[in-house]
């Protein structure tokens, strides 16, 4: 599997990382000012799926391995949270604030554990074999959830995940999601800019050389796999109360494809790229579906065009322009 076209960290190299992140944060803060509840709902989805895509990019953009089974951890997080949610609900069908947050917290550790088990096997392989094994494990987890009626409610899914009254308000749940995603973003940023993050880049560029340098390749890949899984689990935990239900489709390969699409659209060259991809993908989906049933055709065409003409995604294009401008500037002086 080839590494992403644009290398991570270029935004920081251009001194743009903070301004871009701040600009996005300000825009996200202003979303509830838009008329009607609908766009707040869409933006909540943007944030949750953005976090899911960012967690995927830890594997793809930073470690150089593509996973087609990453949604398994998104789904495991969603189910862990939902199952605890249902248990903590009162006889009247509502949930208290503390219990609600407890149920949200259940997602990441359970997803991390699932990632530890799956990752133990996956990190022994690289490239297409890593991708295929991750897909196989993803489908395995999907079928367990799909078929285990007595435990997971099978393909029915789990319904009735209505958050406490305060968070039933779309704007309040949006700001909760924004706060959690911002916090997660800062933690991910810290991780990717730490020595561990640079080891990931080394592993992406040349695993053999990294091994010669004394880096425990499998262990570092496994740690990264678990971190990515836990953040996907956090996104999944946020999904249940947002959607009011969870279902096995959240673990399926098509959901994994969503994270891949978002990362390709936004660009794997930065942490923020997948989030931008989520903005573009989710908004486009919301708008296109209002006018036509041909959404799969639309997104297929867009991905085709990006792969052919914008291999670094939208942010990759911006970087190329910036590089070109800088080269022109250097030439003039």
């Amino acid at each position: 599997m080839s590494a992403p076209e644009v290398q991570p960290g270029w935004l920081a190299r251009h001194g743009l990382a903070r301004p871009v992140a701040m600009a996005m944060l300000v825009l996200f803060l202003l979303v509830p000012l838009l008329p009607g509840e609908y766009w707040t709902q869409v933006s909540t989805e943007v944030l949750i799926l953005g976090l899911f895509a960012m967690s995927f990019n830890l594997l793809y953009g930073y470690m150089g391995q593509i996973s087609f089974g990453h949604a398994a951890f998104f789904g495991v997080g969603a189910y862990a949270s939902a199952m605890l949610f249902v248990r903590l609900k009162t006889a009247g069908g509502s949930i208290g604030m503390l219990d609600f947050f407890l149920s949200l917290l259940a997602g990441p550790p359970v997803a991390a554990f699932a990632a530890l088990v799956v990752g133990f096997f996956c990190v022994r392989l690289t490239g297409i074999y890593f991708a295929m094994l991750s897909l196989a494990f993803g489908e395995l987890l999907f079928y367990i959830v799909f078929s285990w009626y007595s435990f997971t409610k099978g393909d029915d899914g789990i319904q009735g995940l209505l958050p406490p009254l305060f968070f039933q308000d779309a704007v309040n749940y949006y700001y909760l999601t924004l706060a959690i995603v911002t916090l997660a973003f800062l933690v991910l940023w810290r991780i990717t800019e730490s020595p561990f993050g640079y080891i990931m880049r080394t592993l992406r560029d040349n695993q053999r050389r990294a091994a010669f340098l004394g880096i425990n390749v499998r262990l570092h890949m496994l740690i990264n796999f678990v971190i990515a899984g836990s953040f996907a689990g956090l996104a999944g935990a946020l999904w249940g109360p947002f959607s009011r239900s969870v279902n096995p489709g959240l673990l399926g390969w098509q959901e994994s494809g969503v994270a891949v699409f978002m990362t390709l659209i936004g660009g794997a060259g930065s942490l923020i790229g997948p989030l931008l991809g989520s903005v573009i993908y989710t908004l486009l989906q919301a708008v296109v579906k209002m006018y036509t049933v041909y959404w799969p055709l639309t997104i297929g065409t867009i991905i085709l065009l990006i792969v052919l003409f914008l291999p670094g995604g939208v942010l990759g294009l911006i970087e190329k322009r910036l590089k070109a401008r800088r080269s022109a500037g250097d030439g003039e002086t």
């Binding site: 393909d155 029915d156 899914g157 319904q159 009735g160 995940l161 209505l162 959607s243 009011r244 239900s245 279902n247």
Partner: peptide, 8 residues
């Protein structure tokens, strides 16, 4: 499964 989800 879709019906159960949209009922919420």
């Amino acid at each position: 499964a879709v019906a159960l989800a949209i009922q919420e």
